[in-house]
Every structure is written in C-alpha cells, then in structure tokens.
Simulated scan of single mutants.
Amino acid sequence: MKVAIAGAGAVGRSIARELVRNNHEVMLLERKLDHVEPAAVPQAQWVHADACELSLLEAAGLENYDVVIAATGDDKVNLVLSLLATTEFGVPRVVARVNDPRNEWLFDESWGVDVAVSTPRMLAALVEEAVTVGDLVRLMTLRKGANLVEITLPDTTALAGKPVRKLQLPRDAALVTILRGERVIVPQPDDPLEGGDELLFVASQDVEDELRAAVGL
C-alpha cells in the first residue's frame, strides 16, 4: 500500500516508521526545510512541499497513493489537504489528525475526511472504556457517520449464557469482536455471552440508543 503523510514532526515520523515496518511504501511531505531529515526515516521518500499547494501535490504524484494521512499540527492545513486529496486526486482513503477538539465537528466527509483522529477524544474514550460498565462508549469515529463503540456487559446481565444470535441488533450495527479476559473472540452465532464481556460494535450514530436497548441497557 502507498501512503502519503503530510507533516514530518514527531507524529508523522512515528506513523511513517510503523507503516514502513509493515512493508508499506511511504512518502513524507514536510513544509519546513529544517524538518526534512531523511535519516530519521530512511526507508521513506521525503518531499519538501507545502501540503496545501496543488501544484506541489501534483508534482509529488499524490493521485498514485492509496491513503493520505494529514498529520500536521495545523487543523486548517489538515482540512485543506483532506479536501484536495479527495476532490482533486481521488485518493481512496483520507485520515486526518485533529489537534484542537473544538474543531472536530469540521472533520467529516464534507471536507474529504474518512477517519478523524483526535488524541484528546481517544484518550478520554480509553479512560471511559476502562472504567465504564453497562453503558456505550464511543471509541472512534469512522467514515460516513459510523462509529466504533464498546459496551461492557455487567456481571448480572440478562444476556449471560445466551448465544450471540439472540442479540436483536438494529439494522446499521454489527458486533465485530468480543473481548473476554485475554481472549479476542470473533463472534459466531452460537457463541454464548458472559457477564464482563467487552462487546465492540461498528454502528451508525443514529442507532446507538437502539443498540443500548438491544443489550439491555
């Protein structure tokens, strides 16, 4: 997979190293010349370019990339790049970093963003996930209004012992994983549920109340 990352700061470089380690082809775009340090991630292609300049993105061949990651420290730049990547270059997948949580509402498909990653939101969600039992916790917003959400079943849940197929889920919700202790379970229709199970769903925001009802919350 070919991935272009805008912003070669600590975040961009860390993402690049991880992707290179997983055998992906990576290009790092950096506006500040003193931040262009090929030795920091030698396996990546480094390009000195402003990610908001259409001509420079054309020269970099952005249309040839499968994913664009807007990882700069400036939300305005990340939004502009996301829009250009989608509308001008037809990049299939755009992931954007949200620096200021107050701007999170802007990072949606109208700006070309498939997945918005907000560090404060993610940290808060992880804290909630660790301590919340018997309620829905939104872990991440995915594309087109779908969310990755988690529900931890109470020890006294009425679902204990019942098979997964007994869950009457709303139309736009899917159970993707059950976390049980150290086990990661790909749910099958006849798998029994237990109190304390952490259920991970992909669900439309519109059906979250129905999802709560389906698991007895």
Rank of each mutant, 00 (worst) to 15 (best):
residue 20 V to M: 13
residue 20 V to A: 14
residue 21 R to G: 12
residue 22 N to T: 14
residue 23 N to S: 14
residue 24 H to E: 14
residue 24 H to S: 06
residue 25 E to T: 11
residue 26 V to L: 06
residue 27 M to Y: 09
residue 28 L to T: 01
residue 28 L to H: 08
residue 29 L to Y: 05
residue 30 E to A: 10
residue 32 K to P: 06
residue 34 D to V: 11
residue 36 V to F: 11
residue 36 V to Y: 11
residue 37 E to N: 11
residue 37 E to W: 07
residue 38 P to R: 05
residue 38 P to H: 06
residue 38 P to T: 04
residue 38 P to C: 13
residue 38 P to Y: 07
residue 40 A to C: 08
residue 40 A to F: 01
residue 40 A to T: 04
residue 40 A to P: 00
residue 43 Q to S: 12
residue 43 Q to N: 08
residue 44 A to H: 04
residue 46 W to M: 03
residue 48 H to F: 08
residue 49 A to L: 09
residue 50 D to W: 10
residue 51 A to I: 11
residue 51 A to T: 07
residue 56 L to N: 13
residue 56 L to F: 08
residue 57 L to V: 08
residue 57 L to F: 09
residue 61 G to Y: 13
residue 63 E to F: 08
residue 63 E to R: 15
residue 65 Y to A: 05
residue 67 V to F: 12
residue 68 V to H: 03
residue 69 I to C: 06
residue 69 I to F: 09
residue 70 A to L: 12
residue 70 A to W: 04
residue 71 A to T: 08
residue 71 A to K: 10
residue 71 A to D: 06
residue 72 T to K: 10
residue 73 G to I: 05
residue 74 D to G: 12
residue 75 D to Y: 11
residue 75 D to C: 02
residue 76 K to V: 15
residue 79 L to E: 07
residue 80 V to W: 12
residue 80 V to Q: 09
residue 81 L to F: 05
residue 82 S to Q: 02
residue 83 L to Y: 15
residue 85 A to P: 09
residue 86 T to Q: 14
residue 86 T to F: 06
residue 88 E to W: 01
residue 88 E to I: 01
residue 90 G to M: 00
residue 90 G to S: 01
residue 92 P to K: 10
residue 93 R to W: 14
residue 93 R to D: 04
residue 94 V to Y: 03
residue 94 V to I: 10
residue 95 V to T: 10
residue 95 V to A: 04
residue 96 A to I: 01
residue 98 V to L: 01
residue 98 V to G: 10
residue 99 N to R: 10
residue 99 N to H: 05
residue 99 N to S: 09
residue 100 D to G: 06
residue 103 N to K: 06
residue 103 N to F: 00
residue 104 E to V: 06
residue 105 W to K: 07
residue 106 L to V: 07
residue 107 F to E: 02
residue 107 F to N: 01
residue 108 D to I: 00
residue 108 D to Y: 04
residue 109 E to P: 01
residue 109 E to F: 01
residue 109 E to H: 07
residue 111 W to L: 15
residue 112 G to H: 10
residue 114 D to K: 09
residue 115 V to P: 08
residue 115 V to N: 07
residue 116 A to R: 13
residue 116 A to N: 12
residue 117 V to F: 13
